[in-house]
Simulated assay, not measured.
Amino acid sequence: MKSTTRSHPSLGLARIRQSLIDVICYCFILLFLYAAAAKLLDYRKFELQISKSPILTDFAGVLAWLVPVAEILIAILLLISKTTSLGLFAALGLMSLFTAYIIAILNFSENIPCSCGGVLAHMSWKQHLVFNVAFVALAVTGILMQPKPKK
């Protein structure tokens, strides 16, 4: 008698789920490493732009290092399978902070230069808001798709 092995349908769904989580993580890794590199490669410009923000002026010196370092650390967390969940929560937190900052700029400030580097610096504040909201949604999706810890 011939034996056929079929994989359980939930195993296929688990692979698809993990693949989607991986894609979300890679999107964040690419975003954060690109943004951090752009900020660090033109550090003086980044620090100057932060110092012009009415919200961040007093913290410009610290934030000019803290933001790119946080972006790099979160990218590392997302690369390590044991820390993916923590990395997704950290990405959600950072993107939520960035989004709150953009909302504040749009509502309370005028003509504030964007402190993002590279291609992202060419976006308007409203485009940044849409971009950030999309990444917040990606982080939430990745978190919700994480497998439940086994008891």
Rank of each mutant, 00 (worst) to 15 (best):
L73P: 00
G12N: 13
Y101K: 05
R6Q: 13
A139G: 06
C25M: 03
V69D: 00
P147Y: 04
A35E: 14
V23S: 05
L92T: 07
L33S: 09
F108E: 08
S85E: 09
L138N: 07
T83A: 05
P9Q: 10
S3A: 12
A121N: 13
S19C: 03
V140K: 03
A14E: 15
G118C: 10
F131G: 11
L20C: 09
Y26S: 05
F46R: 00
V62L: 09
A64R: 02
A100C: 15
G12P: 00
L78C: 04
A104I: 12
L77T: 01
A60S: 14
L63I: 10
N111T: 09
W65M: 01
S115V: 03
T4C: 06
C25I: 04
G12C: 03
L13G: 14
Q146M: 15
V67I: 15
S10T: 14
H8T: 10
Y26M: 07
T141V: 07
S96F: 15
H128M: 12
G61T: 09
L31G: 01
V119T: 11
V130M: 07
P113A: 09
F89A: 03
K150N: 12
H128V: 10
A75C: 04
W65Q: 01
A38Q: 03
R6P: 00
T57A: 15
L86W: 08
I76F: 10
S85H: 08
E110P: 00
A139V: 01
V23L: 12
E71H: 05
S51P: 04
C27A: 12
V23M: 05
G93M: 04
F46Y: 06
H122M: 14
K151A: 09
S10Q: 14
I105M: 12
K2N: 13
A70Q: 02
A60Y: 03
I76L: 12
A121E: 11
I76A: 08
L129K: 02
T57C: 11
L20I: 15
L73V: 11
G12H: 12
I50H: 01
L77P: 00
C116S: 12
G61F: 03
A38D: 08
H122P: 00
Q127T: 08
T99R: 06
R15F: 05
Q146H: 11
L31E: 07
L30S: 12
P68N: 06
G117H: 12
A104M: 11
Q146E: 15
P68Q: 05
P113N: 08
F46E: 02
G117F: 13
L120E: 10
I55Y: 15
E110A: 14
Q146D: 03
I29L: 08
A37R: 06
I76D: 01
S96Q: 13
S109Q: 11
A37C: 01
P147N: 07
L63G: 10
L31Y: 07
F135W: 13
A75S: 14
I16A: 10
Q146I: 02
I80M: 03
F131I: 11
A139L: 02
I16G: 00
K151N: 12
V136H: 06
H8A: 14
H122G: 08
V119E: 07
S53Y: 08
L30I: 05
S53C: 03
L78D: 06
L13K: 15
T57D: 11
Y43M: 01
S3I: 15
F59C: 04
D58V: 06
